[in-house]
Design a protein around this nucleic acid. Sequence first.
DNA 1: TCAATATATTGACAATCTTCGATATATCGC
DNA 2: GCGATATATCGAAGATTGTCAATATATTGA
Lengths: 122, 122
Amino acid sequence: MNTQSEPPTTAHTTIPGCCAPVFDVGLTDGEAAQLAEKLSLLAHPIRLRLLAILARNGGHVCVCDLEAALPVKQPTVSHHLRLLRDGGLIEGERRGQWIYYAVRREELAAVQAALAQFFARI
Amino acid sequence: MNTQSEPPTTAHTTIPGCCAPVFDVGLTDGEAAQLAEKLSLLAHPIRLRLLAILARNGGHVCVCDLEAALPVKQPTVSHHLRLLRDGGLIEGERRGQWIYYAVRREELAAVQAALAQFFARI
DNA sequence: TCAATATATTGACAATCTTCGATATATCGC
DNA sequence: GCGATATATCGAAGATTGTCAATATATTGA
């Protein structure tokens, strides 16, 4: 907080000598938290690659395939799959011994839309 | 890896009894890492709000204003500003006692483009 | 039922991230 | 130079995340 003279160039509309910013904040606390959560889910190379693989081969990829395609061990693949599933971005269906995962297009589109809105608003 | 019979429905083109997936991986290791890094930078509510504020009031917001607008202390604001600056998304200019930050539009656009490409390719 | 296989979960550990008090540095007005 | 203010950096503490070995659970085929 500046308590001296007015800063040289500023958007402030202040009581002289006090920094009381009245600018457009643009994003509420809650909106920022929600978007950050969605972004956090995407912000990992393994999860991005899982999504990419599943998006292109949805419903036909079992965990063993994913494990074979990625540089991490099976429990780690399961861990990331669970995060994506808990986040609503993918779903799994057991077919016999295997569980086949696929992306949930609507949810992915929702994330994309939220991001687009953010970039549109800034 | 399944070493039994063929999974019921699959994109595999396998040696029977062995899981040798030949599906489109869609995203290289490096691409995923790069995108994840960009997303990690965005994936924090304070940083999203910093970007939003700066985007709408660029060049006219000093750190004291940001501190006043956000629920964290000054060293924390400085910390996130540094991450954003190191990531190329914002830049700061000292004017007298104050340092005014603004978003770097080209870099923001690049992130947006990388994201768009990701969503387009999956 | 049993052995084999696929996937999930648990628990531990390391690494990274977040926050903030304390302090350093820079700038201003006097 | 000095006191006041703005911002950055340091260092510590706690929280979160990522990874994996070990183990549990579920399914299959025999």
